[in-house]
């Protein structure tokens, strides 16, 4: 994860709140606390803790429940974009748990915002956000109780997996269906339908073979140049090495850069164009001069771009012996 850029450096002079002055509410028994937490959870799946509540429900013992807390800084002036994403994912997990079969009062989800509970941050020596910490029923959080978002990220599924590891409570993440995609699709269909309806008297363009041909060719070029690979793997656009040199072509046969695929796409398209020009020139009518030019252009396109393609291919294959026109 490249995330957590908004590592909040917490200033170590926090306002000594009236915590110490305030009377410690020792009063709650465990049953009461569980009851309170359950009540609160019924209202909203992710509880908001400030310093007091944190002390009451998390720091106090004995407990028979786990608490998973997200430490975050959601206030706009903190400018933590990641926190927002993390909070969304966290809420998804909490809601999934709240409305699932396995819902119990063994696990609670809570959030501590830096602006509400900065002394909690201080107490736990946190200086970044967001951080996910699991507080087990017994003992203090260990190393593994802090989720390693640098490495595994904070998608709802990974959070759920991490919770299973820590607490043995299985949460099946149920994402609220994302309607934006469906919505866009519906709108698209609507537009297309409306367009067709408006032009219902003149649907000739649907029978336009050139348009369909172009579309299919473009699709073929996109696929054969590995756009699907780009979509799944997400490679960088180009590669810059330490010396500042830019590599456009990935050195090994296992990988590719986005720019490289565009090059290949253009090369393929040029070759096809060459083929088509050649054929048209040979079969066409019209004045011979034009056809000659067409034929020569087509031939050049075909041979030059194919040899370029071959030489790009050659740079990626060790020991490939063949080339055409250029090395």
């Amino acid at each position: 994860m490249k995330a957590i850029k908004c590592g909040l450096i917490i200033l170590f002079f926090t306002l000594l709140q009236n915590v110490h002055g305030q009377q410690r509410r020792q009063g709650y028994t465990m049953a009461e606390r569980v009851q309170q937490l359950t009540d609160m959870t019924n209202k909203r799946a992710v509880l908001r803790f400030n310093a007091n509540k944190f002390r009451d429900f998390v720091k106090s013992s004995p407990r028979n429940y786990s608490v998973v807390i997200m430490f975050t800084a959601m206030a706009p002036q903190r400018q933590c974009q990641v926190c927002r994403h993390a909070s969304d994912e966290f809420t998804i997990v909490a809601n999934s748990f709240r409305y699932s079969q396995s819902y119990s009062n063994k696990l609670f989800f809570a959030v501590v915002d830096f602006d509400e509970g900065s002394d909690v941050f201080q107490m736990l020596r946190l200086n970044t956000a967001p951080v996910f910490i699991h507080f087990p029923p017994k003992g203090k959080p260990k190393n593994a109780d802090t989720m390693d978002i640098q490495r595994i990220g904070f998608a709802a599924e990974t959070i759920a997996k991490w919770i299973v590891e820590r607490t043995d409570i299985q949460i099946r993440v149920f994402r609220p269906p994302n309607y934006s995609g469906t919505f866009a699709l519906v709108i698209l269909f609507g537009i297309v339908a409306a367009f067709l309806y408006l032009r219902r008297n003149n649907l000739e363009f649907l029978y336009n073979k050139t348009m369909w041909g172009m579309g299919s060719l473009f699709f073929c070029f996109a696929m054969t140049s590995g756009q699907m690979w780009n979509h799944i793997r997400g490679p960088p656009f180009i590669h810059k090495n330490q010396n500042g040199q830019i590599a456009y072509i990935h050195g090994s046969s296992q990988g590719q850069f986005v720019f490289e695929t565009y090059i290949v796409m253009v090369l393929n398209a040029a070759i096809v164009l060459g083929m088509i020009l050649l054929t048209e020139a040979a079969r066409g009518k019209g004045d011979p001069k034009k056809r000659k030019i067409f034929a020569v252009v087509g031939l050049l396109l075909l041979s030059i771009f194919f040899s370029l393609l071959l030489s790009v291919f050659r740079t990626k294959t060790q020991g490939y012996p063949y080339s055409f026109l250029f090395k």
């Binding site: 073929c220 590995g226 690979w229 793997r233 695929t261 054929t279 393609l309």
Partner: peptide, 24 residues
């Protein structure tokens, strides 16, 4: 998923010319 390299490796000139056939 398949890189363009594997397409070219497995099909060579065909991968670059079959769209022309498709066109016709």
């Amino acid at each position: 998923p398949t890189t363009w390299f594997s397409f070219f490796f497995d099909l060579h000139v065909l991968v670059a010319t079959f769209p022309a056939g498709l066109w016709y």
